[in-house]
Design a protein around this nucleic acid. Sequence first.
DNA 1: GAACATTTCATACTAAAGTATGAGCCGTGT
DNA 2: ACACGGCTCATACTTTAGTATGAAATGTTC
Lengths: 139, 139
Amino acid sequence: MFKIILRFGLLALLLGILLELSNYSISNRSYYSEFLVAIAAVGLVAFGFVLRKYIITKTSYLKDEFAPNERKIQLLQISSREMEVLTVMAEGFSNIEIADKLFVSESTVKTHVSNLLSKLEAKRRTEAIKKAKEYGIIK
Amino acid sequence: MFKIILRFGLLALLLGILLELSNYSISNRSYYSEFLVAIAAVGLVAFGFVLRKYIITKTSYLKDEFAPNERKIQLLQISSREMEVLTVMAEGFSNIEIADKLFVSESTVKTHVSNLLSKLEAKRRTEAIKKAKEYGIIK
DNA sequence: GAACATTTCATACTAAAGTATGAGCCGTGT
DNA sequence: ACACGGCTCATACTTTAGTATGAAATGTTC
């Protein structure tokens, strides 16, 4: 992360120097004045262009260090056990498989899922998963 | 599309004028010389920054930097219609809802889903959705 | 044009998912 | 102590989802 900031900082500095250079050459009416300005301009545009990509990829990188949206979880009144069910459910497991993983009965899982559906205002588990992801409460 | 090109063209022109202006003011050693250059530089970076977004979003089939993994789709022998079903299915819709959206019967959707499950080696639609996302064939 | 994949649909199943209701247990807090 | 929320489970039921099979209409490819 610091590496990227450093890289972009250096690039920005370089472009700044280029601009300054063109300033001086303009004052001196050098041959390369217009040329240098053009290069600096193109460089700056490219800088912004690439910057966006890095910002986007690096923020999606931060999604890997996934922190569930606790606010939303509390707002929807989703309990910790429901969260566990939701997480395993999103992995594509059936109710019985979830039950085995959490050491409870299928009935219990069904109850949790049913509660999750109403809390997430979803009609199906697929819809619940989609919404939960949109809310950032699961990855 | 032309609208966007026009907009960006105008913006680029404006930035060019700004640069030229700063050139002149530098020659004249005006108070605003450095200031103008800085504004032009920031403008150019912003230009590139926004440009990327527009290029990506306006090339429509590349939404949010997402390009479906065509190689994987072909490898798994998933047909175009199956892809459509998969996409809508991942949005959390039921078979009947998918059928309505694609103007086919529920039977047809069931067939497609069933084929998708075997092709994706999934036991349930939730698992299929998860795998499809991992493979990068849906977002 | 014959072979082949795709898309469509139906029928008849079985298997899951989801709903509704009631109930017992366990902590926490008033 | 008692109310409350969370977790557990069961039974009974309805609704979807998923499988199997067959079949017909399209394209596509060699």
